[in-house]
């Protein structure tokens, strides 16, 4: 099917980063993002150092140097929500706009804040991209299990991962069927008013729900047939060894050092 690979961002390679324990990678990614949030506004050098770390890790993972950069555009739309930060802090006035009753004063402090928010966000998303492009999602699920996520939630996530492509394909088939039945392209607002169009979409959602519900019945039977009785058992081979612990300690020290450095 057309959408088999679209959700998988894993890049199969054999690198040091790929071979790291997924548990360690998850912890490191979260630590990295945590420390981004702790860095003060305008700590440009520290931000640059962190990007340097991402570049280095990308190269170690045998990815192109701009791989994470290219994919990080996904956070751009949300930058809109941060735009008002430009006008939120007192400081040296750079410009003033009058928007109806709203007076927008652009200050240097506001600009600094806005830029820092974007940088933090952009660095964080790159590290998340690095994580999923060097770790298969089933390994990430195992890591979550090791990190004491409730078994129930881990299981739901595993099922979601298994069936998101299957059900997305079904959704796309429904969409295609709608398209082939409508005389005009949907973008051209053919075929009825808003209410009618919404109802068509709602019927499709209902249909998809029923198919999914029936599928869950069949899956349940398949599980019963193989000995499931309400208690799920899994083998989870990932263990943390000394090397992983050392790496964690080292990264923690580096990140702590960077926090001090940023405040010097």
């Amino acid at each position: 099917m057309a959408h088999q690979n679209i959700f998988d961002q894993y890049k199969a390679e054999n690198s040091v980063i790929h071979r790291l324990s997924p548990i360690v990678k998850v912890v490191l990614a979260v630590l990295f993002i945590f420390s981004n949030a702790l860095l003060p506004d305008g700590a440009w050098l520290s931000f640059a150092l962190k990007w340097g770390a991402i570049l280095m890790l990308s190269l170690l993972a045998k990815l192109e140097w701009h791989y994470t950069l290219k994919r990080s555009v996904i956070v751009l739309p949300f930058a809109l929500a941060g735009i008002s930060a430009l006008f939120s802090l007192p400081g040296k006035t750079l410009a003033i706009w009058q928007l109806g009753s709203l007076e927008l004063i652009l200050t240097d402090a506001g600009l600094l804040r806005f830029e820092s928010i974007l940088l933090r966000s952009w660095l964080s998303v790159q590290v998340a991209i690095l994580l999923v492009s060097t770790t298969t999602f089933p390994d990430l699920i195992h890591a979550l299990e090791h990190l004491r996520l409730p078994k129930m939630l881990v299981t739901v996530i595993a099922f979601l991962y298994r069936y998101m492509t299957v059900l997305s394909d079904e959704a796309l088939r429904l969409l295609r069927a709608r398209q082939s039945r409508s005389a005009l392209l949907p973008e051209q607002r053919g075929g009825g008013n808003l209410l009618w169009r919404a109802r068509t979409a709602g019927n499709m959602v209902g249909q998809l729900f029923l198919r999914s519900y029936e599928r869950s019945d069949r899956i349940y039977y398949a599980m019963l047939s193989r000995g499931y009785s309400g208690h799920l058992r899994t083998l989870n081979p990932h263990n943390i060894n000394i090397r992983d612990w050392l790496l964690l300690m080292l990264s923690f020290l580096l990140i702590t050092f960077l926090q001090f450095f940023a405040r010097l």
Binding site: F137, P138, I141, A158, F159, Y161, R162, Y163, V166, R215, R218, I219, Y221, A222, M223, S225
Partner: peptide
Amino acid sequence: GLVFQNPDDQLFSP
């Protein structure tokens, strides 16, 4: 050993 018709129902693990 019961194997269902649709392998997408039979193979439910990642």
